[in-house]
């Protein structure tokens, strides 16, 4: 296989991967953020303490995180068809990707928001702020650097998931690596694709870390997920992310 042939296959696959990760990522942020917030607010001692809601939400998130992703893709096919009209192609693959990533991100959001000092919430209360104001003026802005780090981790995990989605008709780089590299014994091509994924993951991690650092004014900010930075140095990092996220 020549370099030209490889490139011809790689670029469309790259866009497919970025496309499905992009759509799924956006959906994950939009749904995961409120779910994560609700997990904190409805918990015992929370601003909107509501134990039934908290328990149901927690259970749903746990179940979502327990189902192996390969099975999840197949299990949600009817839903994917309902939303996208088909279960094939990268657009369709973004549906199970989002469903798989939302509980993961929601838990990270929960942890980030919980880290906000309870004294700040108390200070806001003493100023006469209501719950909405406390969330908008304190919880979210104070957790922002950590939320950005969580989003970075989630996007990277999504890239790992996307390789799996690729094997069941989703397209993208993962599918390419398996069909050409593994099944047709083009080992060199497989490693080229893996290298490309490493580059993408590293770029996203660096960008995320940079943003988190810029947003943090605490002066002592270290990404709580900084161990991923060393993990990205290994070629099979995306698979590892996926496993550790389970």
């Amino acid at each position: 296989m020549t370099w030209d042939q490889m490139q011809e296959l790689m670029w469309p696959a790259t866009w497919e991967t970025l496309g499905m990760v992009g759509i799924a990522g956006l959906a994950t942020l939009l749904v995961g953020l409120p779910v994560g917030l609700l997990l904190v607010l409805t918990d015992k001692g929370g601003l909107l303490q509501n134990l039934p809601v908290s328990r149901v939400l927690g259970a749903v998130v746990n179940v979502g995180r327990s189902i192996p992703f390969v099975i999840l893709i197949v299990a949600v096919i009817p839903f994917t068809k309902l939303v996208m009209g088909t279960s094939l192609g990268w657009q369709a693959a973004s549906v199970p990707l989002a469903i798989g990533a939302i509980p993961f991100f929601a838990r990270l959001v929960e942890t980030s928001v919980r880290e906000v000092d309870g004294g700040l919430v108390e200070a806001l209360k003493s100023m006469g702020a209501g719950t909405g104001t406390i969330v908008r003026k304190t919880l979210l802005p104070e957790a922002l650097p950590s939320l950005v780090a969580s989003a970075t981790t989630t996007v990277i995990a999504l890239i790992g998931y996307s390789a799996m989605a690729g094997t069941v008709g989703g397209g993208g780089l993962g599918s390419l690596a398996i069909t050409y590299g593994y099944l047709r014994f083009e080992t060199a091509f497989m490693w080229v694709i893996v290298a490309e994924i490493v580059v993408i993951v590293t770029a996203i991690q660096l960008l995320g870390d940079f943003a988190a650092r810029r947003l943090s004014h605490r002066g002592d900010y270290r990404s709580p997920l900084s161990f991923f930075r060393s993990a990205t140095a290994k070629p099979d990092a995306t698979e590892e992310d996926l496993l550790s996220s389970r």
Binding site: D117, G119, L120, A123, K125, S126, G128, K137, P141
Partner: peptide, 28 residues
């Protein structure tokens, strides 16, 4: 406590409070 009434919130605005650990927002 969960849904502190409007009146209570208004009353709290008329009472200043300072804390041992300052409780300033680091993002601001």
């Amino acid at each position: 406590e969960q849904r502190a009434g409007r009146d209570l919130r208004a009353a709290r605005q008329r009472i200043g409070m300072v804390f041992q650990h300052f409780n300033l927002l680091s993002s601001r």
